[in-house]
Amino acid sequence: MNRGLLETESLSRTYHPGTSSEVRALSDVSLAIPAGSYVVLDGPSGSGKTTLLSLLGALDRPTSGRVRFADRNLEDCSDVELARQRRRMGFVFQDFSLIPRLPTWENITYPQIPRGLSAAKRRQAADDVLSRLGLAAKADTPPEELSGGEQQRVAVARALIGDPEVIFADEPTSNLDRRAAAELAAILQEINAAGTTLVVSTHDTDLKESASLVFLLEDGRLRDDTA
């Protein structure tokens, strides 16, 4: 296994350990994601895709095992260092997770506020990304006034904004019709073509076709033939 941008080693995540509602969402997953690759996580519902993405994206802590991002072991990182690592990543959530009532352009650039960017600069960056995604007209609209597909693209825009090294997208096309899904697939491919590593969980065959690497999850385990 060559050293990738992201690497996991015997990664396990158990929810509510030691209780009657214990769930082993992920067990013993080891994989490597090379820089610049386009990785698809496939698997049935409940197989642990979201769980794995959260661990890769430093949004959750594993029950056991390790995640390495670039040259850092995420388990060894302090709270502040973790925040710093997260700024090198972009995350598109399954449920978008946009902040209600906040206009689109502010939603997208909220992550940059602590970096001290002026409002004007943030607005400029937002407008650039939004026009790339065909949403220039919606910059001042709050998310609750957007369609599902538009919200999905806003979520992608937020993941893109800080020029991250890797973007995680959790079922980014699940809420879209075929046409919108195809559009998004094209956008993702474009992003990947520009050099950004992509890790996408999906059932979408279109997305799988453009992938350079597909991992199949089943009951929290990686199917051997995909590793």
Binding site: G57, L59, D79, V80, A83, R84, R86, R87, F91, F93, S97, L98, I99, P100, Y110, P111, P114, R158, G162
Partner: peptide, 19 residues
Amino acid sequence: PERRREIGILKATGWQTDE
């Protein structure tokens, strides 16, 4: 609950605890 989510989102997008 909304507040928890909001803070979670900020954290997930790279905000630090002190911020």
